[in-house]
Design a protein around this nucleic acid. Structure first.
Lengths: 345, 345
DNA sequence: CTGTTAGCGCTTTCAT
DNA sequence: ATGAAAGCGCTAACAG
């Protein structure tokens, strides 16, 4: 049924080791033999057995992605799909297969990772989340396994990671509104335990401070990366005595919620409230009005993560003072939702 | 570094085969030995080497998903992510790992599949698309490899597949509008080469015919599974002399486009145009107004596909007259976008 | 019940 | 430049 090296060798009248040498592009082999063997391999439809190969080479040419468990899927699925696309594309270009895994809970997750790495089924791991204290990271680090984090962790400083400069991104977003003439600017944040929420909030703070604008605590609300957060935040903001004229939202989804709420109450965007948010999901340019958004290059994030991981698998000599934090550039896409200059006071 | 069966055996003072037997839950083994070995395995942190295991067992306990190539990503990413979630969840429950792959073009795709299957890296494949003539399906079928198609193919009748009854779904959607009192109903279809588009169109036709309603060719337009299609279709419809009062759209994304266009032209939904579409993506209940949609159970589709595939891997005795086409039920979720009864003529 | 033996398909010395 | 032999870690007969 299956064609093995042995079969090819027999048919070609050479030894198995010769065939193996041809396969691996070994230098000391006669051109004639090489050619002959190659033809026969082609004829017989030989495909190397990956398992046997892996067994002896102790490498699998595959990596694995750990998805956050459902409970943490507050981010939009769009985000992950984009990320995965980037990872898969780059991985196949490098000749790596991608395994995708997730656990129902943290314990299961750790078990899965451990099984995959210790069982030598994958060569490295891409983590798509960052918790505060993470048993998985501890395991990977202490085991010396190659891995890269998409996002950042302040507990683990020296690990490989790919992220945006979220502080700067939020700074830019806020500054954009300030430059349009806004002075009372609100912020709808995500879950406070997520680093991305904290970073973006800090960027907002910096921008406000930098321009000497007043920051009221009631202008900052926390929510999820969900539409509902925006919906609720909006009704809260609009009832404030001295309400903001503009808003930075931590995710485009949140903006949709804001839009929906504002729409119901007959407020207009951007005239009554200007909005900028993050991630630039495909829908954000298609809503009415289109939403200004910080494009964080999700695909690029995934692509780079894969690249960095595979590099570290192939030459694990990065103990020297190399960069281990990769920053993917962001850029502000200005759309209608922030194209309005309010009257100066 | 790595702990092997041999190591455990040595420490436990038994033979490697005994350890192996304990591992596989072999019946003829003394309880005492079993316990002892288990303790030592635990102590030493033994993890089986998957590659070695696979090499001898000729099975990998993993399956692979073939994503459509980017060009065909007309479907929303949400759809695939949901599908993948279902597949991954069910697969891990069955103890299978999921490999995810895609090629830049059809040739590459075939090469990848061939490499994975012939190279014994995966036991089976889930195809997430269906083209008319498919080299990949030909390869899988002639090689006798286990695989399942999400969607359906009219060229290959007897292959394993998981799908919705899209004809019926469209029939239901259309009938819902008819029962609300609509008589002039339009249809925005997807790419005509996709079977799902054709099935849904047929369901629409059936429903119209069934109720003896007039069907005009100008009430049926073809587009993509994208928002833009809806946007364009809308402006077309609304300019018709005797325009439809209701619309069935092939995907929720299309509805968003319709909504956006209608909104710009100050038409109201559902008063000026009622809408029902398909897939029930999370956003459809959150738009304004919320969109009535046929929930096709995407997660369930993936979950079942995985189940069916793994079953067929584990007992390939389904040559008998078993079912090989699995139909996932759909259900209509009625929301505001279709909650309006027009005046009878 | 348990130990011994022989591979799974491949790479990699070590010879020639 | 090529062949022979050993072994990666595991399972599955075959013997006790």
């Amino acid at each position: 049924m299956t064609v093995t090296i042995k079969d090819v060798a027999k048919k070609a009248g050479v030894s198995p080791s010769t065939v193996s040498r041809v396969l691996s592009g070994h230098p000391r082999i006669s051109l004639e033999t090489s050619r002959k063997v190659k033809v026969i391999m082609e004829e017989m439809g030989y495909t190397p057995n990956m398992m046997a190969k892996s067994l002896v080479s102790k490498t699998t040419n595959s990596i694995c992605i750990i998805l956050p468990k459902p409970a943490e899927e507050l981010f939009s699925n769009l985000f992950f799909m984009e990320l995965i696309r980037g990872i898969v594309t780059q991985s196949s270009r490098s000749g790596y297969d991608v395994l995708i895994s997730s656990g129902a809970n943290e314990k299961e997750e750790l078990e899965a990772v451990s099984r995959l790495l210790k069982g030598r089924r994958v060569d490295g791991v891409i983590l798509l989340y960052s918790r505060k204290d993470d048993a998985v990271i501890d395991f990977l680090e202490s085991g010396g396994y190659p891995f890269v984090l998409v996002g950042r962790s302040d507990r683990y400083e020296d690990i490989l990671s790919v992220d945006n400069d979220n502080v700067m991104a939020a700074f830019d977003a806020t500054n954009h509104l300030i430059s349009m003439g806004h002075e009372r600017i609100g912020f709808v944040s995500g879950p406070p335990n997520l680093i991305v929420s904290r970073d973006r909030l800090e960027g907002y703070r910096k921008a406000m401070l930098n321009s000497g604008l007043e920051m009221r605590t009631e202008w900052i609300v926390e929510g999820e990366f969900l539409q509902d957060s925006g919906y609720r935040a909006m009704s809260f903001f609009m009832n404030l005595p001295n309400r903001p004229t503009a808003l930075v939202a931590v995710d485009d989804m949140v903006s949709f919620g804001v839009l929906r709420g504002l729409n119901e109450l007959k407020y207009k965007v951007p005239e009554d409230l200007a909005i900028v948010s993050f991630n630039n999901i495909p829908l954000s340019e298609l809503s009415s009005p289109p939403i200004s958004s910080i494009d964080i290059g999700i695909y690029h994030l995934g692509y780079t993560a894969s690249q960095v991981l595979i590099q570290s698998i192939q030459k694990p000599d990065n103990d020297a003072g190399y960069t281990n934090r990769f920053v993917i550039p962001h850029r502000l896409i200005v759309r209608e939702s922030s194209m309005y200059a309010p009257g100066k006071k």
